[in-house]
Simulated scan of single mutants.
Amino acid sequence: MNSVSRPTSQMPSFDVWNAALAQAANAIGSRAFPDALAAALRLLAPFQMMNGFIYSPDGHAFDLYNEKIVAERSLIVDRYLAGAFVLDPFYDAIRADGGARMIVMREIAPDDFAQTEYFRLHYATTEIIDEIGFVLALETGYIAVLSLSRTGNAALFSEEDLQRLRSAALLVCALGSRHWFHVSGLSLEIKNATPAARIEHPLLTKRELEIVTLILKGHSNLSLAAVLELSPNTVKVHRRQIYSKLNISSQAELFRLFLA
């Protein structure tokens, strides 16, 4: 997720920012809210796409806001909701801590994330080159992440961009939570959810399935060794055994086997 550096945007005047926030607050509960919130946030840092997903306490994912996603929905949203979300670093982050805050993809993603099949299918298709998310607390333990993404030839979010967005994060989370708070209780899709995706296989041990999950999420052998408190050589042995048991030779095959 690399791009060229470009001049950062400037902080808006207090009057302009205040007016944009007031417009967003007044739109809470209406279809105009997402656009009003996006307009306010673009005053702090330009971005090309805003979208979001909801996560249930029992490990499901649902659509929060993807009306203007920059890609074919069936390729991105539907595939994500069908199970690929379990590989999303944002999903791991909110499972560890569902508190309102801003999270930055490049700060939390595993070291080999950009080499994963998930990255190729999800990020390459949308042309996302940088992404931040606001964590929203919804009713009955549901959590949402509302993401801002830069795509194509845009620059990465600068440190100044990130600082401005972080400064506004608690306010953005409060507004977003207020607007979407009851959506999980109103959605028939959520009420009629199918069982959550699981990474499992009868030929693999619990430890091997743990390693498969971390490989698919983008952890290198060195990162795997650190996370699991194993030696790098032990990780390599496990990895060879997994591939041998499954009769595969690449991470792409591994991805297709578990999350096609």
Rank of each mutant, 00 (worst) to 15 (best):
R95F: 08
L222I: 01
F14P: 11
Q115I: 04
T205N: 02
F255R: 05
A38D: 10
W17V: 00
N221P: 11
S9Q: 08
K217T: 09
T205C: 02
A82I: 06
L37K: 04
S249E: 07
L214G: 11
V86A: 06
L162K: 03
I211R: 03
V16D: 07
L230P: 05
N26S: 06
Y123P: 01
A169W: 14
T213C: 08
G185S: 15
F258L: 05
Q48A: 10
Q48F: 08
Y243I: 05
R42Q: 07
R166A: 02
S13E: 09
L148P: 12
K245R: 10
R73P: 06
T213I: 09
F53Q: 15
H122M: 12
G152D: 13
I242S: 11
P46T: 07
R207G: 00
Q241V: 06
V16Q: 06
D92R: 13
T8N: 03
F134V: 06
I242A: 12
W180F: 14
F33C: 02
L214A: 12
T194Y: 10
R178Y: 12
A82H: 07
K206T: 05
M49D: 13
F157K: 12
A260G: 13
R166V: 03
L171W: 09
N2G: 03
R31W: 11
I128C: 11
I215C: 06
R6T: 15
F255G: 04
D161S: 00
L230W: 11
K236W: 08
G52F: 15
A168V: 13
S9V: 04
H219W: 12
S220M: 09
P57R: 14
I211Y: 01
D63L: 14
A36K: 14
L162W: 02
N153E: 11
A22T: 07
G29D: 13
R31M: 10
N26P: 03
F62R: 05
R240E: 09
A82G: 07
F53M: 15
H182P: 00
S3R: 12
Y55V: 09
I242H: 13
S158N: 06
R31S: 09
R178P: 04
W180S: 06
E159L: 09
Q241S: 05
D88Q: 04
H182F: 01
N51W: 15
V16C: 01
W17Y: 12
Q23G: 14
L81T: 01
S223R: 13
L87D: 03
G185Y: 11
N192Y: 05
D35G: 12
G83C: 14
F85Y: 15
S9Y: 05
A82Y: 07
S30W: 11
A114E: 08
S167M: 09
E210A: 05
D35A: 15
A197G: 04
L21Y: 13
V212G: 01
A36W: 07
L138H: 10
L203V: 02
S184I: 03
A25K: 08
I108C: 00
S30K: 12
A174Q: 12
L162S: 00
V77Y: 14
M50F: 03
Y123I: 04
V77E: 15
P89T: 05
A196D: 00
A124P: 02
V104Y: 11
V145E: 05
H179N: 10
A144F: 11
M1S: 04
V16A: 06
S30P: 15
E253P: 12
L246R: 06
F113E: 08
T234K: 08
L259S: 01
